[in-house]
């Protein structure tokens, strides 16, 4: 005899990942390691900005980098070559985001003895925001050419971020980017988020960014 029965689950799809992420975050805090999840669109200048930032911070902290990409290792190779810091490439196997499990695996591969680890997430403003990686801080980079209205179009990633870096400010003269409007849009989504406009190319305001990290790092 066969029978059909219903099994009640009432379980969020993200629940397992959220639990794994919370555990990872606790472990990191206990070890005194900061894990910074960096999110942005493709082409926002993440890798260039990270290289410029790491060169400054490397004087004070032992830094590692995890690069997440769907399928390549160009970013990991570039960052390692330009900064000399330890880096690993995580392949998401076609997925558009990293989850806590993949992050934990990357951390194991990276090894111990680091103070600050950057996780360069997949270039995408939607999926990475939905999956908690277990990071101790979340950052989103918004580049000037993308426009000031991105916080309206992709609210979740701005809600989840502690810091919004507006990058490529050297391009401001060529675009209609309203910085104050952008600040308002971010504030309306996430009152707690800070916004720091920078140019990795000219070095403009990179001191302010460096100081943010010095303040926030355990």
């Amino acid at each position: 005899m066969q029978e059909v029965r219903t099994i009640l689950l009432s379980k969020s799809v993200f629940e397992d990942n959220d639990r794994a992420a919370d555990k990872l975050r606790r472990d990191l805090r206990e070890k005194g390691v900061s894990l910074v999840n960096v999110m942005s669109s493709p082409g926002s200048g993440k890798t260039t900005l990270l290289i410029a930032l790491i060169r400054r911070l490397a004087l004070k902290f032992r830094i590692g980098v995890m690069e997440a990409d769907i399928d390549s290792d160009v970013d990991a190779v570039t960052v390692a070559r330009e900064t000399g810091c330890r880096s690993v490439q995580l392949h998401t196997g076609g997925m558009c985001h990293l989850d806590a499990g993949m992050t934990a695996e990357g951390l194991r591969e990276l090894g111990d003895g680091l103070d600050l680890i950057f996780l360069e997430n997949v270039g995408n403003l939607v999926c990475p925001a939905e999956y908690d990686t277990g990071a101790t801080a979340n950052i989103v980079i918004l580049s000037v050419p993308e426009g000031a209205d991105k916080p309206l179009k992709y609210p979740l990633v701005f809600q989840k971020s502690d810091l919004v870096i507006v990058s490529k400010t050297d391009a401001l003269p060529y675009f209609d980017f309203d910085m104050e409007q952008c600040r308002k849009y971010i504030g309306a989504r996430n009152g707690a988020a800070e916004m720091i406009p920078v140019s990795a190319k000219t070095g403009e305001n990179m001191d302010a960014l460096e100081n943010w990290f010095i303040r926030k790092i355990i």
Binding site: M1, Q2, E3, V4, R5, T6, I7, L8, L9, S10, K11, S12, V13, F14
Partner: peptide
Amino acid sequence: DQVIIKDIAAVFGE
């Protein structure tokens, strides 16, 4: 904003 698996109906044999 939820994405929830509510329940599943499955066949059970003896």
